[in-house]
Design a protein around this nucleic acid. Structure first.
Lengths: 218, 218
DNA sequence: ACCAGATTTCTTGTATACAAAAATATTGAC
DNA sequence: GTCAATATTTTTGTATACAAGAAATCTGGT
């Protein structure tokens, strides 16, 4: 059993916001939700508070909570920050990671490549996440690791959306290989620059994706 | 009136944790706190949840919440991340900030220097915070700005503690001047490196401060 | 018909009541 | 006296009840 009802509800709501079931600006009614999840308002309120702190909803006092989907500009900004945090991870990892860790990274990357070859989108996504998470860990800075994971989680749905962009997978594979090489050489600055570009490009791709869709939506 | 009781309590508790009234590992009893603030358990619980998300307390299911003061290692880690985020701010600001903004920055820095000369510790602290906050803003990345402010707030009590270190103020003044100069030149990389060192040194100073105190405490 | 003020309804924020789980105390066997 | 099993107490998590603020509706005047 997961810890508390409030936590389950928070995760559930997070998913519903991520997958767009609750659109931007939509009000989340406490009683409606409590009926939906068949609990009282108390755990629902706790869950909503959590989402509010995560920035997924805005909580206006005495007014209610409203879904707050990041717009294209904010997304670019978030990817920009993510790129910097990951770059820092890589730079630190380059000087701190052991030979065993490097082997482990290669192994993860190999699984990632294999998934690409097998057209296994889900598998590739998982291993790719692993690749990045492993780098956070190897930065040797636990706090940095936590912050990276937090932001990665937040950007997850958007990453996933643009993963299908044509040719992105091949390109990503090449970039990963370059990153591993830089880490092998202990060249922190190169690794940092590579990762920065690798992550930032996702934000840009997503931006273009959005822009091309926006006119159609109106 | 501040938004809700829960918010007031959260801020109050935050202060009590920051100033050390509640030490590391101490359990925060819901009923005790509700009596102390003369409210029911409900707003207290909401406040505790907020602190839990901010990382100021650990919340063990069905066990209670416990104060979680960062140890020296974690502090260094946090300062390291802060340094990177600020470095990014500076780098972006160097290419994005206008001439008017640069003037404004100079003005803030002048007030900061004046406070140093006047031995006005509090004033200097405020203006110094302003200086940094202004740079976050000038990064042109709102998300980055928010993240910087969040972490700055978290590290506030520790910054303050080591601010009195002998000669630090003078040194800090010089560093600020260098940073302004780099921004004037639009030299983002130099500005980033300067800021990174400027912030990271605080973490190191604090580490040494702690280390020298630790033996005495035992 | 339209607007201002009052009234009602609805929703959030807080208090209290209850349930379940963990910590503590108690009792009994060896 | 010590340990273990059980009973009691505490404390957290959840449900419900109540209060107060905001939105919506109604009413009367122009």
């Amino acid at each position: 059993m997961e810890r508390k009802r409030a936590d389950i509800i928070a995760d559930e709501l997070e998913g519903l916001i991520f997958d767009g079931t609750f659109g931007d600006g939509q009000r989340l009614d406490e009683v409606q939700l409590s009926e939906r999840f068949d609990v009282s308002r108390t755990p629902v309120r706790e869950a909503l508070q959590r989402l509010s702190q995560s920035g997924l909803v805005d909580q206006l006092p005495r007014r209610g909570v409203f879904v707050r989907q990041p717009g294209p500009i904010e997304l670019i900004e978030m990817f920009e920050v993510m790129a910097e945090l990951e770059a820092t991870s890589a730079r630190l990892a380059a000087s701190r990671m052991s030979d065993e860790a490097l082997s482990e990274l290669r192994a993860i990357n190999a699984r990632c490549d294999a998934a690409v070859e097998a057209q296994d989108t889900d598998g590739n996504y998982r291993e790719n996440e692993q690749f990045h998470a492993f780098l956070y860990q190897q930065s040797g800075n636990r706090f940095l690791e936590q912050e990276c994971l937090r932001l990665q989680r937040r950007l997850q749905p958007f990453r996933r959306a643009q993963l299908r962009a044509r040719g992105r997978l091949r390109q990503s594979k090449v970039e990963h290989a370059q990153i591993v090489a830089a880490l092998h050489d202990g060249d922190g600055d190169t690794a940092a620059n590579l990762i920065r570009a690798h992550v930032a490009v996702q934000g840009e791709k997503f931006y273009h994706l959005i822009s091309s869709l926006k006119p159609a939506a109106e």
